[in-house]
């Protein structure tokens, strides 16, 4: 794990050096570009006068103390920016995961149980649609239909623009509004979360539903399903307690891996829904050649992904008795 993190850091750092863009253009205004003194001063101030290995060692050293450098654009510490925005992304991604898994598992189970019926075909269409439509198109389309046209769901943002946000404790708007004890604001936050989370979760729901269907088909043919029926168990019990429980390990895997997709998808979703998370931050940073911010976002994203893989592995052990005792 520590080696993986170091790997991410190194890669993120090196990737910025192979890009064509000159970071100076982000720091120094066009007019000052012609002034050698100003350029030299800026280079010295941002450490750009040092060699690449030197910069790398300094960066890693600073990183160990929690310092990710200063953003060219916001002129604030990158660590502060990123951790301020991380909860918004996590809230969106987790909500998307919840929606995606719930829809995906339900559809997968139904499709397998009613294989080759209308239900199965509808689920297949839903999955294919979700996986093939780009997030940004889907986001814009749904935003237009539900918010602009029908007005049944709110527009972009995390809260009604007129509302005063609650004091930030966790950074999760839904939790912070609950902590503040403001039920109305909580519902508003939840309301704002639904559409972006659904847009982001749809593709994941598609993937999960296909996998769950395939696994359920296999499990439903196994003998212990017959045993369960011969015991007098009802169909719901047979399907959920006996069959679905046995597809948990592969399902957890795909949910775990879908996290990477969700993090990437969040970049586009956040941009469309004006969601103040890491994704929109990353887009701004990339536009402005804000290298410290780009590296910071990459590292934090990578570490979050590593952590989810770790959690997935732990969940395996809980779900599969053979691993637990073996």
């Amino acid at each position: 794990m520590p080696f993986l993190v170091l790997g991410i850091v190194t890669l993120a750092f090196l990737l910025t050096t192979v890009t064509k863009g000159d970071p100076l253009t982000a720091i120094v205004s066009d007019r000052q570009m012609n002034d050698p003194v100003a350029v030299a001063a800026a280079k010295a101030r941002w450490g750009l006068d040092r060699s690449l290995p030197e910069r790398y060692v300094i960066y890693v050293g600073n990183l160990l103390t929690g310092d990710m450098g200063t953003s060219f654009i916001t002129r604030r510490p990158v660590a502060q920016d990123v951790f301020f925005r991380l909860p918004a992304t996590m809230e969106l991604v987790l909500a998307a995961m919840l929606i995606g898994s719930t829809i995906g598992i339900t559809l997968g189970v139904l499709a397998a149980y009613f294989r080759n019926t209308v239900i199965d075909h509808a689920a297949r269409f839903f999955a294919l649609f979700g996986s093939s439509i780009p997030v940004f198109w889907l986001g814009l389309a749904l935003l237009y239909v539900f918010s602009v046209k029908w007005g049944i769901l709110p527009g972009p943002g995390r809260l009604d623009p007129r509302a005063t946000p609650p004091p930030s404790v966790t950074g999760f708007m839904t939790i912070d509004t609950l902590i503040a004890g403001n039920m109305k604001l909580f519902l508003d936050a939840l309301w704002h979360l639904i559409l972006p989370a659904f847009v982001l979760g749809w593709a994941v729901a598609g993937t999960i539903s296909r996998l769950v269907r395939a696994n359920m088909l296999e499990v439903l043919d196994r003998e212990f399903i017959l045993t369960a029926r011969a015991k007098g168990a009802g169909e719901l019990r047979v399907v959920v307690r006996h069959a679905l429980r046995n597809t948990l390990v592969p399902t957890l895997t795909v949910i775990g891996y879908s996290f990477a997709y969700l993090l990437t998808g969040a970049v586009l979703t956040e941009t469309i829904f004006s969601w103040p998370g890491m994704g929109s931050y990353a887009v701004e940073a990339a536009r402005g050649l804000d290298f410290p911010a780009i590296i910071g976002v990459t590292i934090v994203g990578g570490v979050v992904f590593l952590l989810t893989n770790l959690i997935t592995d732990i969940a395996y052990v809980i779900a599969n008795p053979r691993v637990r005792l073996g």
């Binding site: 003998e223 212990f224 045993t227 011969a230 779900a319």
Partner: peptide, 25 residues
């Protein structure tokens, strides 16, 4: 039928490994 199965009429099957649910004690 369900009320009878497992209660008045019970069944056992050929392969006892695949006939038991692997993830339940």
């Amino acid at each position: 039928l369900r009320a009878l199965r497992g209660s008045r009429i019970a069944m056992i099957f050929q392969d006892p490994l695949s006939s038991l649910n692997p993830v339940m004690t």
